[in-house]
Amino acid sequence: MIKTSTPNDILRILYNEATEEEKQALTSSFLFDELLEETYETFKELLEQLDLVGMNPSQKTVDAILTYSKSYSLHSTE
């Protein structure tokens, strides 16, 4: 019996939480379910877009963190 995939399966596959069997089932489902394939593409693109949305802290903050770590080392080895 062929296992059909669901939109929830798509999310688990995109986040590498699915088994190989589930990935193959999704590919098979695309053959007869265009809507599912469209959902897959939409979610994939959205997740890629979410990667770009992230913000970086200032270099000053990063430097402060690294300096703190180094000073912690000095302090702990005294």
Partner: peptide
């Protein structure tokens, strides 16, 4: 083991996701 360079890589690798989570 005291390799501060390794820590710098970790911080730079993940700073974006962590900062975004906070923001």
């Amino acid at each position: 083991k005291g390799n501060e360079g390794a820590f710098a890589i970790l911080v730079n690798r993940h700073k974006k996701r962590i900062y975004t989570t906070i923001y």
